[in-house]
Design a protein around this nucleic acid. Structure first.
Lengths: 168, 168
DNA sequence: GTTTTAGTACTCGGATAGGCCGTGTCCGAGTGCATCTGG
DNA sequence: CCAGATGCACTCGGACACGGCCTATCCGAGTACTAAAAC
């Protein structure tokens, strides 16, 4: 029997799904406004997510200075600054970390083929770095306010519905 | 003792190091030329890498049609087409797979905040898709021949040294 | 009635387990070469 | 000497373990509100 269905190991380089959670949560925080704080539990309930784990992601945002956290009753999270000055690059960096996806292991300096120890940069690393720079640049060009505008255009009732649900 | 050193979980979204291996190996294949095949064992020895695992990566390249493999004595791998028509995007896709790094889980359709089931695309997914498109576009703009030119400029003796080592 | 004070419920915060995928290794199928043998 | 058959060594190819990181969860520290009690 020939092996027709055989999928290679194709699922590498996955971004943490916490990024999607973070962006959606920040949208809700922006719609709610700075006067009211939303708790991790409530945000998790809105999207049917594990509350404790979402809390972990929000903590990362707090450490990055994107949101502020207040403990105790009537506490929760709120945006630390206007939505126009929060970019997708900020959010991705806060969750995924500042490390680039491609890390040059400098294999060119290992084994018999080792090049002389000079200060030249690996050509592969350079090319990959350029690509990743383009990626981050594109992310930095999209602010949270831009996403809000897009949602206002594609699903105009979503913000009001969220506001209403979180108000209760 | 206060915990001064505390790093958050910052190591996400890592690209497989097999990509770096693949690119360097393809460079050597290009320098060697299509007349001679290089075995996985020999390529691994050149960079002091685990031979069997490198073989696995080269198999992925073979499946993608980037290299051709010939079994038996005097067998090995060689480039399937000229270096100018092999882009970094091809290599990354061959190793990492065609799936994008960001996969929208559509959490906006879950829980009480679920939007109506329409055909609109998630705004977050759109923005992330744009960024990843820019990344892939930059990768597609760099061919293997461009990398060879860069190496010729920064380390002019590397190609000849490789040719000589692999010739023995 | 006002002020103080204790209690309580609720929130974030970090430390702690489980599962999946990348990393690494192994052995079998197939091929080309070299050698040996017969003409 | 030459042609054919045989054995062998070498290669890729896919199947099998191990470990690290993401996912998920739990309990403790801290705070604001509530309510009771004393003045």
């Amino acid at each position: 029997m020939p092996k027709l269905f055989w999928m290679s190991s194709i699922q590498n380089m996955r971004m943490s799904e916490g990024v999607e959670w973070a962006v959606h949560c920040c949208l809700n925080l922006a719609w709610t406004g700075p006067d009211r704080a939303l708790t991790a539990t409530r945000l998790a309930a809105y999207y049917d997510l594990p509350a404790a784990y979402l809390n972990k992601q929000l903590q990362a945002l707090a450490r990055a200075g994107i949101v502020t956290s207040t403990p105790g009753p009537r506490g929760g999270f709120r945006l630390a600054r206007p939505a126009a000055s929060i970019t997708l690059a900020d959010l991705v960096t806060a969750i995924e970390g500042p490390e680039p996806a491609f890390r040059c292991a400098e294999i060119r300096r290992r084994g018999p083929g080792a090049t002389a120890v000079d200060d030249t940069r690996c050509a592969v690393d350079q090319a990959m770095g350029r690509a990743e720079l383009a990626w981050r640049r594109e992310l930095a060009g999209q602010a949270l306010s831009d996403l809000m505008a897009t949602v206002d255009r594609t699903a105009p009732d979503a913000p009001e519905r969220a506001r209403r649900w979180f108000a209760t």
